[in-house]
């Protein structure tokens, strides 16, 4: 019996570890904070996403709101078969616009980077982004690429 349970748990763990993109599908609600520029103030945000996964592609669709601001989110993250590499794009019509992303998936985590210039201030806001999925939670953290000690956003999602 113990062996059976161990086998099931191992299977579950391996499935999470094998394909984090698949585990990120579904409806998610999140709250946390974000800032627009590395020097900018932290702002409370709440987000809602409806992700779908098909043929190794995670399609992200949702919205985030900060007080007095709404942001639409849309993106596509593709995983390559038998590879840790991921690529895709991110589209935020209210802010960054269209940006390409590239990174890796490893265990329960996907990590990618993107390069962007803030449309209003012209500040370089290239970021390292990490999505970590586990159980019923998903955590999104981003840091400044120039100075990774500066966290740009930290949002915890639940289903």
């Amino acid at each position: 019996m113990r062996r059976v349970l161990s086998a099931v748990l191992a299977g579950l763990c391996s499935s999470v570890a094998a394909e984090p993109l698949a585990d990120m599908q579904g409806a998610w609600s999140g709250s946390g904070w974000a800032r627009e520029t590395p020097e900018g103030p932290k702002e409370a945000v709440r987000c809602r996403m409806e992700n779908t996964y098909e043929s190794n592609v995670l399609t992200v669709s949702g919205r985030c709101v900060a007080a007095g601001q709404k942001l639409a989110l849309a993106g596509e993250i593709k995983g390559k078969a038998a590879s840790e590499q991921i690529t895709g794009h991110w589209f935020n019509p209210d802010g960054l616009g269209f940006v390409r992303i590239s990174g890796v998936r490893r265990g329960a985590v996907i990590a990618f980077t993107f390069a962007a210039i803030h449309p209003e201030t012209g500040v370089d806001i290239a970021q390292n982004v990490e999505w970590r999925v586990g159980g019923q939670g998903l955590r999104l953290r981003a840091s400044d690429r120039t100075d990774p000690r500066i966290t740009m956003s930290d949002i915890a999602f639940t289903r």
Partner: peptide, 21 residues
């Protein structure tokens, strides 16, 4: 919660009067 201080170089839309925490 929508209140912001006067826009500045670091905060183009103005720093929120109520901080994230």
């Amino acid at each position: 919660f929508a209140l912001r201080f006067t826009p500045s170089a670091d905060a183009a839309k103005g720093t929120p009067v109520f901080s994230a925490e």
